[in-house]
Design a protein around this nucleic acid. Structure first.
Length: 576
RNA sequence: CGGGGCGUAGCGCAGUUUGGCAGCGCACCAGCUUCGGGAGCUGGGGGUCGCCGGUUCGAAUCCGGCCGCCCCGACCA
């Protein structure tokens, strides 16, 4: 492609709206332009990158035996009402009416549609396993889109759905996707880690996230260098230290603590370390049950774990008047001793065996000190309900856990029968019984991959694309189009490289060399071939790798062969 | 949804405090010179100053309302 015939509007200055490297460079290199908050158009270069990612995803999905389909973006409300998610899904689900006043939504995900597509058609276990996938637009009306394509409202996603007759078969389907995902991200040049994850509101049992290491990431990766354990913040567990506490057990005592409510305030006022305090939090589960959670003052309640502990799908902080009703006191003075109403008490497992703790006295402006669990108050259940903290011990090997930030590029779930059962999607099994499909679902953020790659592979001059998803393989740069020998060599190289099937972006613009070098660095095409006046006199050109900065000078006669060799090596580095 | 900030040429910004000709740099067009890391000179084109209303002889500037965008947090199938 000749740059004079191409559309690559690069920007010299950083657009004010862009903070993170990927966002900045995608705009500056002319890959995308914003249409509205979280909604982007792809320009020719950007779309070439996306198409290459799509092709890698497609190859690996096909290789894993999945079948490509194409499902509608606009979906009728009835399907979502059937699964129960019309009510459950929040404002992220963009709803609207058609001309007949019928409710529709833009698909944020396609479980409902795929289940509807398969039910009734797949009737026998003999037709299983089945894995259907698609690659196209999703729309989620995010509360706060940010970081350009990392959290956009409209984005391209690959989503796959597996249907199996048994949990054992689901394990096989799941394993194939795990393998395919690892191959995909390797081929895209990403440095990633697979973490155990919570399943969240999508439902299901086992789940893994594919996370790309990046300081600008929104997610926290909890990992252990000792044994390779890795989990996301919600899921991460830690090894419990033996906490049989030394010292005499003392008698409880009420203390006047006027308007002293927060952990910090109580800690300061009483001169007690936060770890000796008990945070008492009243929650309402989606089952309607109220629960009092107790966690040490120096730790935070993990709502996902807490919900799981009480067998609820979700939990929500109780409202102030609900707290007043249950504890007989306002938030800040709630504790496990002497609650007005009896509710289930769930304490973090680190609380067990502790002595002489401090908590609210369930009396306005009073705390109670020297209370010991199972002696001065009853705990119905000890469970892991807090977030792991950096430095906690790895649940597998006991080494200290480390935290790092990451971007989620893929997520796989063992869904089970959540949707197949709700939507009555069943098959006839070998034993003649009708059973709901055992499902799995598997997502990859295609456009997010493009951004994640830039987050990982850039420098102060621009992007450093891996060759597999680079918009072009070679940037052919003629330093001076008015110099006849330069132009002649460049034109011939261009024709020869194209003839060999190399994707070349030929910078044949009548620009100064400096402008061309800056653009070449910015757009980050991996192999740069420079035809300059001095070298041209010696019948040589310069080949430079964008990633390493490595330069070699080769005779014009062997330049094409050398480029082919380098290209081959660059692809080999990315092989799974 | 809570907090903060911004909206003036395609991009980056000044001007708003104290009302008085709408500016600067880059980009764009023409010419001359220059030509391996975002050139120089000369001349030029381009604006509903986010929108609506109000105050005023006069509003980018003051007042009221609305909209959009960014950042922090909450949320995130």
């Amino acid at each position: 492609m000749r740059l004079t015939r191409y559309y690559m509007p690069t920007l010299k200055e950083k657009p004010s709206e862009a903070e993170t490297p990927s966002h900045q460079y995608m705009l500056r290199a002319g890959l995308v332009r914003k249409l509205a908050a979280g909604i982007y158009s792809f320009l020719p270069m950007g779309w070439r990158v996306v198409r290459k990612i799509i092709e890698i995803v497609r190859e690996e999905m096909d290789r894993a035996g999945a079948l490509e389909v194409f499902l509608p973006v606009v979906q009728p409300a009835e399907l979502w009402q059937e699964s129960g998610r019309w009510e459950v899904f929040g404002k992220e689900l963009l709803r609207f009416k058609d001309r007949h006043e019928r409710d529709f939504c833009l698909g944020p995900t396609h479980e409902e549609v795929i289940v509807d597509l398969v039910r009734g058609e797949v009737r026998s276990y003999k037709q299983l396993p089945l894995n259907l996938y698609q690659i196209h637009i999703k729309f989620r009306d995010e509360a706060r889109p940010r970081f350009g394509l990392i959290r956009a409202r409209e984005f391209i996603m690959k989503d796959a759905y597996s249907f199996d007759k048994s949990w054992e078969d689901l394990d096989v389907s799941y394993g194939k996707m795990y393998e395919a995902y690892s191959r995909i991200f390797k081929r895209c040049g990403l440095d990633f880690v697979v973490v155990e994850a919570e399943t969240g509101a999508i439902g299901g049992d086992v789940s893994h996230e594919f996370m790309v290491w990046a300081d600008t990431g929104e997610d926290v990766i909890v990992f252990c260098e000792g044994c390779g354990y890795a989990a996301n913040k919600e899921k991460a567990s830690f090894m419990l230290d033996e906490t049989e506490e030394e010292g005499e057990m003392k008698e409880p005592e009420k203390v006047y603590t006027p308007d002293v409510r927060t952990i910090d305030e109580v800690s300061n006022f009483l001169g007690v370390d936060p770890s000796k305090l008990l945070k008492a939090l009243v929650y309402r589960a989606n089952t309607g049950e109220f629960v009092l959670f107790l966690v040490p003052g120096d730790r935070d309640l993990n709502e996902a774990k807490a919900a799981r502990a009480v067998g609820a799908e979700s939990i929500e902080m109780a409202l102030p008047d609900e707290v007043l009703d249950i504890a007989g006191v306002s938030v800040g003075f709630v504790g496990p001793c002497g609650l007005r109403k009896k509710v289930k008490v769930v304490a973090d497992r680190t609380v067990k065996g502790r002595k002489n703790l401090v908590s609210g006295a369930n009396e306005e402006n009073y705390h109670i000190v020297n209370i010991t669990p199972d002696v001065h108050f009853k705990v119905d259940l000890y469970e892991d309900i807090v977030f792991a903290e950096e430095g906690d011990r790895c649940p597998k090997c006991g080494e200290p856990l480390r935290f790092s930030r990451g971007i989620e590029v893929g997520h796989i779930f063992k869904l089970g029968t959540k949707y197949s059962a709700a939507m009555k999607a069943t098959f006839l099994d070998e034993d003649g019984k009708e059973k709901p499909f055992i499902m799995g679902c598997y997502g990859i953020g295609v456009t997010r991959i493009a951004a994640a790659v830039i987050e990982q592979r850039h420098d102060e001059h621009g992007i450093k694309w891996p060759i597999s998803i680079a918009p072009f393989e070679v940037y052919l740069l003629a330093t001076n189009m008015k110099d006849e020998s330069v132009k002649k060599i460049a034109e011939k190289l261009y024709m020869d490289l194209v003839a060999k099937g190399v994707e070349v972006l030929y910078d044949d613009r009548d620009e100064r060399a400096g402008v061309k070098f800056k653009d070449a660095d910015l757009v980050g095409i991996p192999i740069r071939v420079t035809v300059g006046e001095k070298r041209a006199k010696e019948n040589a050109v310069e080949i430079r790798l964008r990633d390493t900065g490595e330069v070699e000078v080769v005779p014009v006669s062997s330049a094409v062969d050398r480029v082919l060799e380098i290209r081959k090596e660059l692809y080999e580095e990315l092989e799974p």
